[in-house]
């Protein structure tokens, strides 16, 4: 029964304590780029969660088969396949999302959350735990995107959930709900918030707030310290000075 408890923990850690965006500072590129509107942020979050869940399951299932030496290329192939599958599905069934995300949809491949979880978790844990970890991290990523985009869209465009109709069209074409308009802000939007500077600014403030909350709970601040916070760092460094090959040779 001890295992069951820990699986619940694997799920919830991605939401707050180890939130990939605000705590681990991973996947910053998509976070900044697609958080201009809540609809595209949700779309991105769901797409990345699907990839993360699938790749975590497959990588965990194959963790004893994939040779140590070629594990990074193998992970990249697996992740890239799922990204392409998701991309094709989005193009076919949610074309509006495809045009909203543009190049950032295929760029999920290099989202460090996904490769990071593959390397740090799925390659070491059982299938169920990896699946739950992927789901939790994915939902944490989506929640962070949702928060960021809510602030940016309301202040920057004066709307909330604008364009959600095109996303909901997957389930039913009859949905007429297409978001809210915020009075006053809609006529006088603070456009800078949807522009690039606003992205950096809102992200900075969010990190400051999450640091404040973490501090109250006695947890360390979120830091991006060179590559130290990147889960790829250890393997990068290994490749960099060739230890990877030597290690394998030594065996």
């Amino acid at each position: 029964m001890a295992e069951k408890k820990s699986i619940g923990k694997e799920f919830t850690k991605g939401l707050i304590a180890e939130n990939p965006v605000f705590r681990l500072v991973l996947g910053t590129c998509p976070t900044l780029a697609v958080s201009t509107s809540v609809s595209s942020a949700i779309g991105m979050g769901v797409a990345a969660t699907a990839v993360l869940l699938c790749s975590n399951i497959v990588i965990s299932a194959l963790r004893k088969i994939i040779p140590q030496k070629v594990r990074i290329p193998a992970y990249i192939v697996i992740i890239a396949s799922f990204v392409t599958i998701i991309q094709l599905l989005v193009k076919a069934f949610v074309p509006a999302l495809d045009s909203a995300l543009g190049v950032y949809l295929p760029l999920i491949v290099v989202n460090c959350i996904i490769l990071g979880r593959a390397e740090a978790f799925a390659s070491k844990n059982a299938v169920l735990a990896s699946a739950v970890d992927g789901l939790g991290m994915g939902i944490g990523f989506t929640a962070a995107l949702f928060l960021m985009s809510t602030v940016r869209e309301i202040l920057g465009s004066g709307t909330f959930l604008s364009g959600i109709k095109d996303l909901l069209a997957v389930f039913s074409g009859d949905i007429q709900f297409n978001g809210f308009t915020i009075p006053f802000l809609n006529e006088n939007p603070l456009t800078v918030f949807v522009l690039a500077p606003g992205g950096f600014f809102v992200f900075g403030i969010m990190i400051a707030l999450s640091n404040k909350l973490a501090e109250r709970k006695g947890k360390p601040k979120a830091e991006l310290n060179g590559c130290a916070s990147c889960p790829m760092a250890s393997s990068c460094a290994l490749i960099a000075d060739g230890k990877n090959c030597e290690e394998a040779d030594a065996k």
Partner: peptide, 17 residues
């Protein structure tokens, strides 16, 4: 072994795609 297994993964991935 690494070459063959990487090749197999690629083959399966491409077939799926």
């Amino acid at each position: 072994i690494p070459t063959v297994s990487l090749f197999l993964i690629c083959a399966v991935a491409t077939a799926l795609l």
